[in-house]
Design a protein around this nucleic acid. Structure first.
Lengths: 328, 328
DNA sequence: CTGAAAGCGCTAACAT
DNA sequence: ATGTTAGCGCTTTCAG
């Protein structure tokens, strides 16, 4: 392995000079600079980032901790974070927690130990509860998807209450009154969407049917089983709202298996706009989150904070969009 | 920041002893060990992985380089790699190349500079062409999804030719003769699937309609436009095969927009089994790859190689499955 | 503008 | 069984 000393010797300068050249620091004669660069090229030198990191205490890696890598929402976010990071010369480490707070804590610790430059996190509910105003992550952190109010920290979210209200109202205004709702449990997201859902019912003077409201793990199989329960209800719902695309997939499956026709027998709307929402028949009416924007904003916020740790924290609330298709 | 020296002082031992305790090395009295552990706990010490890495030249991070993070195939693979790595005490760094060989090379270099323990890679075509038998990645590498024959390296793949043959034959045996095929360009995968496609036609004495065979970027929009072209053909195909789920999504959209009915007007089959394949109507007949198994096998192979670099390389060919639904 | 030298925090010979 | 010591490869004062 060729190291900085080898370059220094070959170029007839000191390691300090080579280091300056590599870091593009001033106070080096262009002539010397060029000579060094030539040697670097010729000897195929690559700087050891580990040593660099240890000595200068800086790294060009940011991390993204997501609760479910198989959720299309986080996939788009990852993509955006990846793009943005790359543009700024950073690389991304992706960690999946599966909503497991133990794994989340392990990841957070590891990342600190690895001295990453910062992390973007969608925290588990448990973590959120444990965060107190005096928590010290020991590194720049921006939180996405989940709402934090007890913490002074950069935060990128959407207005879930308002969004759920819009989506639910759409259902109601199309004449559906008995509405079932399936929400993710274990996150502020699910709770806030539930709240907006309730508000919409109230707005229209509809008494919520509590037996039609379910909280569950936000996974496809749970969407399926919960929908089955709703459909087996003697007084089954006229419409269903799901709080993410995984639940929607399960719900759709259950509806189809029950030989029900959308939207005639039952209407359906969901949060999130996965690829398949426009492919199913009838196409699914959804409340789209600006996933790419969320990732990009979070990454930009993080990188700005890395560059200036004293900068004041901000909460960015992004706009959502109701996409009306045929399912309601 | 509390460092190993602080622990040593507080526990009344040397840094070497602390290091041994932390690494669970033998030759430490249990009594001393316990004392050290207590101090570690009390002082909330965390080992600096960067220093550890620099000194011992080992890291507990593996990387996964994928060509398209938004392809459901790679998502399942990521998930599997993540799970497997975690089980073995490794963390995963995910890099997206977007089929851009420049970015791929940059990632590979970065990973080397960061001294990661190893890499799982689905190489771009260009990289594959450049790899020669004497290439040195400077770290353990296992290649997935793409077939490498000019290289002695660990490799996890499926038999694409055979799989495409099965899938195409299914179409043919259901009475479809004029068959269109849309394949990803820029990867061995697309070419091999094309080859199997052609073999199936030949098996059944069907003359391939070259104007119905397209190579394109394996993205949804390209699937859409290529299918549109196929459908505008005066003698349009009776059936279409797409070589991944993104292309299938685009194709489906094009077919629907053209007011054609599947499978009566046109049949359709595809590689890969994304969530939505069973949700669309009619449900899509697909050739499923063992995505999770691919990821797990690759990660296990990589970790074994990290532990024993002299181990002989192997190529693992995983079985695929034809899932017959209603689109053909 | 350039070089000498001191370490970043840790591990691993080599002693004892 | 434990301690001493010499670095891993790099950056960064401090001198000159």
């Amino acid at each position: 392995m060729v190291k900085i000393k080898d370059i220094a010797d070959a170029a007839g300068v000191s390691t300090a000079t080579v280091s300056r050249v590599l870091a593009n620091k001033p106070h080096v004669r262009t002539e010397v600079k060029e000579r060094v660069m030539q040697v670097v090229q010729k000897m195929n030198y690559r700087r050891n980032r580990v040593a660099q990191n240890l000595r200068s205490n800086t790294s060009k890696i940011i991390a993204l901790i997501v609760s479910d890598i198989e959720n299309p929402f986080f996939q788009r976010v990852s993509r955006a974070v990846d793009d943005t990071a790359f543009e700024h010369g950073y690389s991304v480490m992706l960690c999946n927690t599966g909503e497991d707070s133990t794994k989340e804590e392990a990841s957070l610790n590891l990342l600190r130990d690895e001295n990453v430059a910062g992390v973007i996190l969608s925290p588990t509910q448990q973590a959120l509860d444990n965060f107190r105003n005096d928590i010290d992550f020991h590194m720049p952190v921006v939180i996405i998807d989940r709402h934090v109010d007890n913490l002074d920290i950069d935060n990128v979210i959407i207005d879930n209450v308002q969004a759920a209200r819009i989506l639910t109202s759409h259902l109601i205004e199309h004449g559906y009154q008995r509405i079932g709702g399936i929400f993710g449990r274990g996150s502020t997201t699910g709770r806030e969407r539930h709240e907006g859902f309730m508000q919409a019912l109230k707005d229209h003077n509809i008494k919520p049917a509590t037996d039609l409201i379910k909280f569950t793990d936000p996974k496809e199989e749970d969407g399926y089983s919960m929908t089955m329960k709703l459909l087996q209800n003697p007084n089954r719902p006229e419409g269903i709202l799901t709080s993410n695309s995984l639940l929607a997939a399960g719900a759709l499956l259950a509806i189809r298996e029950s030989k029900l026709v959308i939207p005639d027998d039952i209407a359906m709307v969901s949060f999130d706009n996965p690829t398949w929402a426009k492919l199913v028949d009838p196409a699914l009416t959804v409340l789209e989150q600006p996933t790419y924007e969320i990732g990009r904003t979070a990454a930009e916020l993080l990188i700005k904070r890395i560059q200036d740790p004293t900068r004041s924290n901000r909460q960015v609330v992004l706009k959502t969009k109701l996409i009306i298709r045929q399912s309601c």
